[in-house]
Simulated assay, not measured.
Amino acid sequence: MSSHPHIALPWAVRRTRLPLLALRCVACPCGHATTGNGRFRVNANGKLLDVWLLVNCVSCDRTSKLTVHDRVPVHTLPADLLAGYTANSPTLVAETLLDPLTARRNRFALAWDGCWELHAPPVPEDPWPLKITVTFDDPVPVRPERLIAHGLGISRTEIARRVKIDIPLNRRTKLDFSFVLVWSLQ
């Protein structure tokens, strides 16, 4: 990026609430669901266990089940995990919802619009260049161009001139990255 000395600033992308699920409702034309209060349903059949995460349609409030575990032997689940399912642990609800294997198995995507915010300290006027490191607390897919424009309050044209970055600006990422902001040469 740059061999000149620079100031490093940390930025963090943090979740403000759980995202909606892009999941088609069977009862209405709505395409989004929410975890609501975050409840699990645990059902034992002999020595086998089923665990589902209950979600509600945002339009008609119909409850649907997302499979978390299907016919697993009870002794294979750790006791604290089973206790978290039966107690409807909010942390476990978030972990389950953000798990890509659960999303793939149940064929849903996460709708992150309005569910995250950028925590960024103010940008000092001098000296240049300025290195900014962006970290993600949760896998929020964001275009670096949009994030940088929001954090710095500059236009896309200005980003193209002043930002040196190793990843594409217009492709969504969930991974930590850094960029260097240089003084504009006009």
Rank of each mutant, 00 (worst) to 15 (best):
D126W: 05
D126M: 05
D126F: 06
D126Q: 12
W128L: 11
W128K: 04
P129T: 07
P129K: 05
L130W: 01
L130E: 01
K131T: 14
K131Q: 15
K131W: 05
I132N: 00
I132K: 01
I132Y: 01
I132D: 00
T133L: 15
T133F: 14
T133H: 15
T133G: 14
V134H: 10
V134F: 10
T135L: 12
T135D: 14
T135N: 14
F136I: 11
F136V: 11
D137A: 15
D137N: 10
D137S: 14
D138P: 03
P139C: 11
P139L: 09
V140T: 11
P141I: 04
P141L: 04
P141R: 03
P141F: 05
V142W: 05
V142L: 15
R143P: 00
P144E: 02
P144S: 01
P144I: 00
P144D: 02
E145S: 10
E145R: 01
E145H: 00
E145A: 08
E145D: 07
R146D: 08
R146K: 07
R146C: 01
R146I: 00
L147E: 05
I148P: 03
I148Y: 06
A149K: 08
A149S: 14
A149G: 13
H150M: 13
H150F: 03
G151F: 04
L152F: 07
G153K: 06
G153D: 06
G153M: 08
I154D: 02
I154M: 11
S155L: 12
T157H: 13
T157R: 14
T157Q: 14
T157W: 11
E158P: 03
E158T: 14
E158F: 03
E158I: 11
I159N: 05
A160T: 11
A160V: 07
R161G: 03
R162W: 02
R162L: 01
R162K: 12
R162G: 09
K164T: 09
K164M: 08
K164V: 12
K164N: 09
I165S: 09
I165F: 08
I167G: 10
I167A: 08
P168S: 11
P168D: 12
L169R: 10
L169I: 06
L169C: 05
N170P: 00
N170C: 02
N170A: 08
R171F: 01
R171P: 00
R171A: 10
R171H: 09
R171M: 03
R172Y: 03
R172D: 08
R172N: 04
T173Y: 06
T173A: 06
T173K: 05
